[in-house]
Computed example of a mutant assay.
Amino acid sequence: MPFSDPANPAEALQLLIQGNSRFVDGTRLHPNQDADHRTALAPGQTPFAVLFGCSDSRLAAEIIFDRGLGDLFVVRTAGHVAGSEVLGSIEYGVGVLGTPLVVVLGHDSCGAVTAASNAYDDGNSPTGYVRDVVERVYPSVLSARAAGRTSIDEMVDEHIRKTTDFLVERSGVLAEKISTGECAVAGLSYRLHEGTVRLVSGHGALGEHLVTS
């Protein structure tokens, strides 16, 4: 079946949700994965969403959202921790490529969040650069604990919220695009066993999609 480009952020999010439903149901269409589409994309790209997600090997964006070549501009780090390189990549997707949606994708049982929670409990952090990742997640764990949220998955949701807020607060390009309605940010949480996504946080016009508590 043909896929038209989304006209706004809400439509872009709807395309992702529909693709995820197909992935969960086992009715994937594998759109935009053929040789003709590959050739057509060679001159340039026009993705409809920036996907900033955790590097976990089970979060392959094009698979869990049933999308193909040229659909998603993907940026991934462990624990979806964001620094200047991530912000620059997202600003390129939004400001240069004109994507109408930025998605922050976290997941249940996140190792980075678990490590930060363990560091809170016992005071021990990993060594090397993994420690830097954990330290960037740590404020989300503190915020969740202060609000009485003690399970790892509740902390994951808090980390997703903190990340979406961080992107909008730090990126003037993204904030401006949101203010004009050209772009929106959606924080999604993925369940590893079921394969489903749930909207946790958002900035901008996401249409009928409601943010959960």
Rank of each mutant, 00 (worst) to 15 (best):
V94N: 03
S117H: 15
G148K: 14
A184V: 02
G148C: 13
L87N: 00
D132Q: 12
V141L: 07
D165M: 01
T46D: 12
P31G: 14
Q45S: 06
L87P: 07
V81K: 03
V103K: 00
E208K: 11
G98K: 06
D36Q: 13
R76Y: 00
D56C: 04
S109P: 05
F23E: 14
I90T: 05
V94Y: 00
V96Q: 04
E169C: 01
R145L: 12
S213F: 15
R58K: 11
V200P: 00
G53W: 00
A10F: 01
E182R: 14
C110W: 13
E62L: 12
S213V: 10
A60M: 09
Q33Y: 09
G172K: 01
V141A: 11
G68A: 08
S189K: 07
Q14A: 11
A112Q: 08
S179R: 13
I63H: 07
F52L: 08
A119V: 06
G128K: 13
D132C: 14
M1T: 04
S213E: 15
I90A: 03
R22K: 04
T163H: 03
G93Y: 01
T196L: 05
R136K: 10
V86K: 05
R191T: 10
F65M: 04
S84P: 01
P2M: 12
N118K: 13
F65S: 00
F23Y: 12
A116Q: 01
F23K: 07
F23A: 05
C54Q: 13
V197Y: 01
G187C: 01
I90Q: 02
F166Q: 13
V133S: 04
G88W: 01
H80Q: 09
D56Q: 05
P31C: 11
E169G: 07
D25H: 10
R58M: 10
V50M: 05
D157T: 00
D71C: 09
P6K: 05
V75C: 05
A116L: 02
V104P: 00
E182A: 15
L41F: 15
D34F: 15
V200A: 02
R28K: 09
H159K: 10
A115F: 12
A175Y: 04
H30Q: 08
L210M: 14
V173D: 04
R67K: 14
G207P: 03
D122P: 11
L72A: 04
V211E: 08
A78S: 10
T212M: 08
V185A: 02
E182G: 09
F52V: 02
R136I: 07
R145A: 07
S171Q: 07
P47N: 11
V156E: 12
